[in-house]
Amino acid sequence: MHIYINRLSARERSQLLERRFTHEELAELHAALLRGQRARRRTLRILAVAVPLGCLALIGLMVSRAGLTPAVLIAGVAVLLMVALALAAAWFAAIGLYARQFNDAIDEGYPELLGRLHL
Results as ranks from 00 to 15, higher is better:
L26E: 00
M1N: 13
G76W: 03
S64R: 11
A32D: 02
P70V: 06
F92S: 07
A78R: 01
P70T: 09
N103F: 06
A39R: 01
L87A: 02
G109Y: 10
T43C: 03
T69C: 06
E108H: 11
V51K: 01
R40A: 00
L34K: 02
R20I: 01
L114T: 12
A86M: 14
F92Y: 14
L81F: 15
L29M: 10
A88N: 13
R40K: 10
L68R: 13
Y4N: 10
L68V: 08
L34P: 01
V51A: 10
F21A: 00
A57K: 06
L56F: 09
A90Q: 09
R116L: 09
R7V: 12
I3K: 11
L44G: 00
P52L: 04
L56N: 03
V79C: 12
R100L: 14
A27Q: 02
A27F: 03
P70R: 07
M82A: 15
N103H: 11
A78D: 05
M1P: 14
A31G: 08
R19S: 12
M82E: 03
G96H: 07
P111W: 10
G67W: 08
A94M: 12
L44M: 12
E25M: 07
R42E: 00
M62H: 06
L8R: 07
L68N: 11
G115Q: 10
L81E: 10
A78H: 08
R11K: 14
R11E: 15
T69L: 08
G36L: 04
R19Y: 00
A50H: 09
L97P: 00
F92T: 07
Q101C: 11
A105C: 13
A93Y: 06
L87P: 09
